[in-house]
């Protein structure tokens, strides 16, 4: 040891830059945080250009993400539309009261006045048997056939619009039951019945969509995770060198997380395109069908908010998938 000490005397004095700790001292905290963000930015950009550099592989993975997410998104749109269909009736429930066909006109008018006095009833619309027939001929397209009938098969009808307060299914049901007691009324039909059933079906449908979306998202998570695992495997040398020269886990992790994020983003964009194309392809048919049913129904698209949510969720799932792969596989790659 003494000898080595002696040797050192012969050497020139160390430059002050080369002293221990000089490395840390020369980068200020401001520089560090700037370069931290610079590395985020460069990882973000280089991850993207890497993916674009292998377009086929990128497209395949993105398509897996897109198809898996387009399916629940489409179901979601379908559900929303069915719900919208239900809601438009739900908003103004009506009770159709079919009157005895032999009821006298005066008796009917008197009855209408009586009904208008009910505080559950907002309005009463009277459709005489002739009105009903004319209306039906106009709307149904059975005009010719109907005019050949000897007798009008339709009963005179009262359409009762309940007040807002009486619009909930239970009150409506009670009101309907009370109407049945009336001598003039033969039958009552509540528009609510099928709306209630529809509502239950919708709740079930939503649960199915959520379960399906969860399952498919898990699939996406694993697909992205597996792709990232391969990317890690391919860049093993780089990871080892980075770790050898003092790269932190965060530094090594970052490019892969951004790769996952990009896969998710590409997949989400593709999913939005797929759903949009699907919408466009059936929109006109639905519109024609709705017109044939004299309905003002229009197919609802996913909308800007829905599309942004889809893309955002896809990006998040991509990032999560990458995180999964990175946390599992990156720690196994250590310089030996």
């Amino acid at each position: 040891m003494a000898k080595s000490g002696a040797r050192r005397v012969e050497r020139p004095a160390p430059e002050k830059n080369n002293g221990p700790g000089a490395v840390q001292a020369k980068t200020s905290i401001g520089d560090k945080s700037r370069s931290y963000w610079a590395h985020h930015r460069s990882s973000f950009i280089s991850a993207c250009s890497r993916l674009l550099g292998a377009p086929v592989q990128t497209l395949m993975t993105s398509l897996v993400v897109a198809i898996a997410l387009a399916l629940p998104a489409t179901l979601y749109i379908a559900l929303n539309n069915v719900q919208q269909l239900g809601d438009s009736w739900d908003a103004n429930p009506k009770i159709s009261a079919y009157l005895n066909p032999r009821a006298k006109e005066e008796a009917i008018q008197e009855f209408i006045e009586k009904l208008r006095g009910y505080n559950e009833i907002n309005d009463v619309e009277y459709l005489s048997a002739d009105d009903a027939l004319r209306d039906f001929q106009l709307r149904s397209g059975f005009g010719e056939t109907l005019s050949e009938l000897d007798e009008n098969p339709l009963p005179p009808t009262l359409i009762l619009s309940p007040t807002k307060a009486a619009s909930d299914p239970d009150t409506l049901k009670r009101l309907g039951d009370r109407m049945l007691q009336e001598a003039l009324i033969d039958d009552v039909s509540l528009d609510m019945e099928w709306v209630r059933r529809l509502r239950e079906i919708m709740i079930l449908g939503k649960k199915i969509v959520i379960a399906l979306a969860a399952l498919l998202s898990l699939g996406v998570l694993l697909a992205v995770g597996n792709t990232i695992r391969l990317a890690i495997e391919n860049r093993k040398d780089e990871i080892i060198v980075a770790k050898l020269v003092g790269g932190t886990d965060g530094f090594v992790r970052r490019p892969f997380l951004y790769t996952g994020l990009w896969y998710g983003l590409f997949g989400g964009l593709l999913a939005a395109v797929i759903v949009g194309l699907g919408y466009m392809s059936i929109n006109q048919s639905v519109q024609r069908l709705a017109d044939l049913y004299n309905s003002g129904f229009r197919l609802q698209a996913l909308g800007i908010e829905g599309n942004l949510t889809l893309i955002g969720l896809a990006t998040l799932i991509g990032l999560l998938g990458a995180w999964l792969a990175v946390s599992r596989h990156l720690s196994q790659i250590e310089p030996r």
Binding site: V23, T27, D31, R34, S35, H39, V245, G246, T248
Partner: peptide, 11 residues
């Protein structure tokens, strides 16, 4: 350049 980028040097 790798060790410098890792250590956070300005470009």
């Amino acid at each position: 350049a790798l060790p410098l980028q890792i250590a956070g040097y300005q470009s």
